[in-house]
């Protein structure tokens, strides 16, 4: 879990290009505390920009919406942990046009196979071929280096129905209770 957070923390610093080095290196708890301590205007502008821009589906995929022209898709840390060791990843084909909810690939562990459904419609621009040789990257950094594909979002309004980080967290807690 901590490895996953450190991984996405690293990516966060890169994307924001802010002096967030400190945040990236600290623990998740510290990160949340530091973020909360910042003044309101700063929070509005920067903090959680990434978090706010990452949206989740009920099928545990995430999509980074900071650049709808080329949005990364992956599976959530929660899903990666629940799956266990990922031993095989099936990636989509570059150039395919997909509709929201289509299975665009699959993630397999020893005991299960899970389809990856695209959170939005669009065209597949890029795939993370690292996963073909080292599928375990998904476990190490599900919301960072373990991204699956990049998609050109066709209809930005489709993003509205997705959950933000807070809503997704509440959703997974609810799922876990059941």
């Amino acid at each position: 879990m901590s490895a996953a957070i450190a991984g996405s923390g690293g990516a966060l610093a890169k994307v924001l290009q802010r002096p967030a080095q400190g945040l990236a290196r600290c623990s998740h708890q510290q990160y949340l505390r530091l973020r909360a301590q910042r003044p309101a205007h700063a929070r509005g502008l920067t903090a959680g920009t990434r978090a706010l821009q990452k949206k989740y589906t009920e099928d545990h995929e995430w999509i980074d919406t900071s650049n709808p022209e080329s949005a990364a898709i992956g599976i959530s840390s929660y899903a990666a942990k629940a799956l266990g060791d990922v031993v095989y990843v099936e990636l989509p084909t570059i150039g395919t046009s997909v509709s929201k909810g289509d299975a665009i690939g699959a993630v397999e562990s020893v005991k299960s196979a899970s389809d990856i459904m695209t959170p939005v419609s669009g065209e597949i621009l890029e795939v993370n071929s690292v996963l073909e040789d080292t599928p375990g990257t998904i476990n190490k950094s599900p919301e960072g280096e373990g991204w699956l594909a990049r998609i050109k979002v066709e209809n930005v309004s489709e993003l509205e129905g997705l959950m933000d980080e807070g809503a997704y967290k509440a959703f997974t807690e609810e799922v876990a209770e059941k």
């Binding site: 266990g84 060791d85 031993v87 562990s109 020893v110 005991k111």
Partner: peptide, 13 residues
């Protein structure tokens, strides 16, 4: 139990 917290399914195998 399908697995235990100390080892993943693969590790346990």
């Amino acid at each position: 139990p399908v697995q235990y917290s100390d080892l993943s399914v693969g590790e346990s195998h």
